[in-house]
Simulated assay, not measured.
Amino acid sequence: MHLFNTTTPFFDIFLSLKRHYPLILQLVKREVISRYRGSLLGLLWSFLNPILMLAVYTFVFSVIFKVRLDQEAGVYYDDQFAFALLLFAGLIIFNLFSECLSRAPGLILANVNYVKKIIFPLEILPWVTLGATLFHAGISFLVLLAFLLMIDHPIYWTLVYLPIIIFPLLLLIMGLSWLLASIGVFVRDIGQFIGLLLTVLLFMSPIFYPASALPESVRDYLFLNPLTFIIEQARAVILYGQLPDWAGLAVYYMVALLVAWGGLIWFEKTRKGFADVL
């Protein structure tokens, strides 16, 4: 099977999103609401969770361990909140990536009833997961900005570049999600493997440290991790007021688009066998 010998056009990556947007939006709302259904505080938990986590990070790393960034590891090295901000910003990006990919192998298995319905567009299921995860990531970013205001940290105008930085990561997530959702139908163990891989990525990503804190000989290998560049760029525009690395972003966009296209092609080629396996 030649993967790119296909009738799936390149811009079909966005076709299902455009064509089924009302359905995707409805399913995203259901996904978000169902997460907190039955709880006393309901949707309020989506705000409380990041607030409590940021408070814990600030207390633990600023008061108990009193972690400081040295001058070469980043600006605001003398700020007692620097490490908590660095950690929280990195975790927002990682959680966005991690939640989508950890759920991807089970997407089709969890929606077997949709497989039997010929008219249901199965390719939108990763969009639904991404939409719900983006909702919570957006709230976490709002909490981060509110905290920056509270501690009188500058809010830089470079923040406007954040969507441009995040978008290629979303394309990468979609491509990998389509791929894993398909493989998960035929190879049930893939979910366990992805869980282990995400744990490794957690510690191999510059979440608990800035990439600049590592020796240059090691730093280049760290950027083989697809999360490293996005985490560093997001911190740059939010916390440091630096412009994005446009050349690096251009390369990332090209790779992410190819991954998204390849993932969709694989999904479309294998979906015909879903009903036979399930």
Rank of each mutant, 00 (worst) to 15 (best):
G263C: 11
D276F: 00
A146R: 12
L198P: 11
S140C: 12
L202R: 11
E123F: 13
G262P: 05
L149Q: 09
N49Y: 14
V255S: 02
E232G: 04
L122Q: 03
Y21K: 06
S205T: 09
W246M: 10
A250G: 09
D189Q: 02
F47H: 04
L17E: 08
E232Y: 10
V255K: 01
L239W: 00
P9D: 11
T129F: 02
D220M: 09
D78T: 07
P244Y: 00
W178A: 04
P163I: 07
L144S: 08
L3M: 08
G263Y: 09
Y161G: 00
L69K: 08
H2V: 13
G42F: 08
D245T: 00
L27R: 11
F267G: 02
A132R: 02
L41R: 14
G90F: 06
L101W: 10
S16I: 14
P22K: 14
G90R: 01
Q192D: 13
P210Y: 02
P244C: 06
A146W: 12
F223L: 07
S98P: 02
K269C: 03
F147P: 06
D78W: 15
Y21G: 13
L107C: 06
I165A: 05
G184T: 10
D189I: 03
V115Q: 08
Q233R: 00
V259P: 09
F97C: 12
R103N: 15
D276I: 06
I166E: 00
G175E: 13
F88D: 01
G241V: 00
L40W: 06
L109C: 01
E99D: 15
L134T: 06
D152R: 15
V143Y: 07
